[in-house]
Each structure stands twice: as C-alpha cells, then as structure tokens.
Simulated scan of single mutants.
Amino acid sequence: MTKAKRIQVVPDMSLEYFRQATVGALRYAFNTGRMEFPGRWLDHERYGDISPLVKRDDIHGLIVAAHDAAEEARFADLEIPVVNISNSMSAPRIPVVTQDDVSVGRLAAEHLIDRGCRNFAFWGDKGKSYSDERLQGFRQTLGSRPLQVKLGGRNRVRPHPVFKSMKAFMKTLPPKTGLFATLDDSALYFLRAARELGRSVPDDIAVLGAGDDDFLVEIESVPLSSIRLPAREIGYQAAALLDEMIEKDTRNVDSIRLPVHGISERHSTDALQFEDPVVTKVMRYLRDDITCQASDLIAISGVSRSGLQTRFRAAVGRSLLEEIHRARISQAKHLLATSDLTLENIADRVGFNSAQRLHAIFTKSVGTPPGVFRTRNRAIAATPLHR
C-alpha cells in the first residue's frame, strides 16, 4: 500500500472561500486515502521562514493562498511542490487552481442585463488578477452599454476611507444601475452606502457580489445576490494536482481554472427594471414559472405575438424563445451541478418535454452535453470529515 503523502494547507482562514477550499482538500485526502494532514500550523508559526516547519512535520507538499509576489516567494523557494489557490497575481510562479474569473464577470453582466438594468457599474480591487479578469468578462458581455468602473480595493485595517470612496462612487451612479462588486464584503459596503444615501436596493440600484458567503449574504436587511464560486471543488482539485506533482516529482504543471456554478439570487437584484411594462410583466411571469410556454407569455402580455416579439427583442436583446431556453438552461445547469436528479427529471422540472430535447438545447447553448457538464461541475460529495 502506498504511503500517504503528508500535506499542509496554509490559507487565510478568516475568509469563508479559503475555509471551503480547505474542506475540499480534506475531502480529497479522505476519499482517496493518498494524503494525510498533520496538526494545523498555528497562525504565529505560518509567518516568516516556514522551512523549519516543513522539515519538522516531514511535509511533502503545500496548498497555499499567496496573494502577492513577496508572499509567493516564501513558498516558491521551498524544495517541495506547492499549489496556490489565490488568483491575485497576473504572472504567478506557482501553479494556481482557481475559478474562471472571466466567466464570473460574464455571468454578473448577464444577470444584471436580465434584471433590465440600463446602466452598469463595477467595483474592483486594483492590481488583483481576479478583479481584472472579472472586469474583462463584465465589460465584454456589456458591449456598448454604459459602464462606470472604479478600482477602489479593500482595506481591512482602515476600512473607513474605502467606504467613503464607495459612497462617493455610488453618488455618481444614475438610476436603474446594476452594480457588480467583485467580492461579497465589498458588495455589503455598497448596501450600507445605499441605505445611508437613501437609494433603494434593488429598485434604484441592483447590487451583486461574488463568493456567496453564507454569513455575509444574509447579514444586511437586504439579502445579497451573489455568484457561487466553486471553492470546495478548487480545494479538491488543488489536492489532486498536488498529489500528481508529488507522485511525478515535478513542478511543471499547468494551472487549472474551474467553471462557476451560477448565481444565488436574493433581494438585492430582485427587481425588473425594463422600461417597457409589458416586457417587465412577461419577464416576471417567466421568472416565476420557467415551465411556461411562449403561448402563455403572449396571452398574459395582452399584445400580439409579433408585437411582443418586437418589443421583447428591443428590451432584452433576445427573442422570446431564446429567453425561455436561457432561463431553463440556467436552472438545468444548477440542478446538474448540485443534485442527483436524472436528465428526465431535470427536463420535467425546467419545462422541456423530453430528456432528448433538453440534451439538444443544452449542448447547443453550453457547448458541452449535460453529462459532461455534470461531471465537470459536480460539487464534492459530502464525505464525512472524520473517518
């Protein structure tokens, strides 16, 4: 029997994202039996030269969260394989396992466009790769739509100046703006800023975060919509990559970017801001019942089929059928990633009349068949953390 490799995880445990990634790494170890974790290094031990700790505990590899070049250098110069789970640097020396942050930006833009927002804003972290990539995807998807960008960052030590900058930025935003803040904690500051400025969320400004931190998204009076990031899967895949690096005695491996799982929609973006009241009515009906048919939407609209199609495309940028398919596929993706439902069950739940029909439209829309999508995106199985 192969001896288990001794691994240490060195993330920022103050953030839920990295706590979840750590759980994912533990799941890989427990599922495979190929890794074991010695006692957790204490906070005061993790700073400075960690090579004595590596030697003391006979560590074969590390999973770390290195956010800048100086921090990365502490790990890159060790004589053991290291995998980074922080996507903060544009040119990392250590292989990175993270989410596809360009897709995070695209998903954010699509969601805010679908809410009918007519103006858009982005708050990011200057010099951070995840922020730059999210802005890239956000901007690409918005195209020529109005966009205001502020790279104001975060400051845990002195948050007040950042909050003042956020309030000043929010004052410049016109009504019916969709604001994407790259992290949940920044989005929460904007919810507070809106309250202090007397701006209604989501009717005046829709606010969207990323990370879907269970605690943060519910802490304000307006629950926060947030993009779900595959933190546990990142930890799991980081452990698998580290296992491979140790087994093959190599550091020459490619970084890995995992797809995102969708959006947890809450009240902060729960407004349909289309100028056309007929389109708003139709979109609200569809959002409440994605199994409805185009004929149902035409009937409740009170206008002709051709009239609704013209007005709908002008407001949304898609045909009525394209929007129905988009809504159904979005829910199908969520069910594939988070449940064990059969394709037949999923087809029935989202409004397709057969699994074959769902398979065909899903493959055309997503670019990959539902089964392949499920394999790539399934959340890590809920294996007990204690054996």
Rank of each mutant, 00 (worst) to 15 (best):
S14P: 05
L15V: 07
A21G: 12
P38D: 09
L42A: 13
D43Y: 02
H44Y: 13
R46H: 02
P52M: 01
P52Q: 08
V54A: 06
D58S: 14
G61H: 00
L62G: 06
V64M: 05
D68G: 04
F75T: 12
F75R: 04
D77H: 15
D77S: 15
L78F: 01
M89P: 01
V104M: 07
V104I: 00
I113M: 10
F122D: 01
W123A: 05
G127I: 07
K128F: 10
Y130C: 03
S131K: 00
E133L: 08
Q136L: 12
R139T: 11
G143L: 02
R145K: 11
R145Y: 04
N155H: 09
R156A: 13
H160E: 15
F169W: 10
F169S: 00
L179F: 14
L179C: 13
E196F: 12
V201H: 00
L208D: 00
A210R: 05
D212T: 03
F215I: 15
V217D: 02
I219P: 12
E220S: 15
S225W: 05
A231Y: 02
A238G: 02
E244I: 04
I246E: 04
I246S: 04
D249G: 07
D254A: 14
I256N: 00
Q273A: 14
E275F: 03
V278L: 04
T280V: 03
R284P: 05
Y285T: 12
I298F: 07
A299L: 06
G302P: 01
V303T: 14
L308M: 03
T310P: 01
L320Y: 00
L321M: 14
L321P: 03
L321C: 07
E323N: 06
L335H: 08
L341H: 13
L341T: 11
N345C: 12
R349Y: 10
F352C: 14
A355V: 07
L358A: 13
H359C: 08
I361P: 00
G371S: 15
P384C: 05
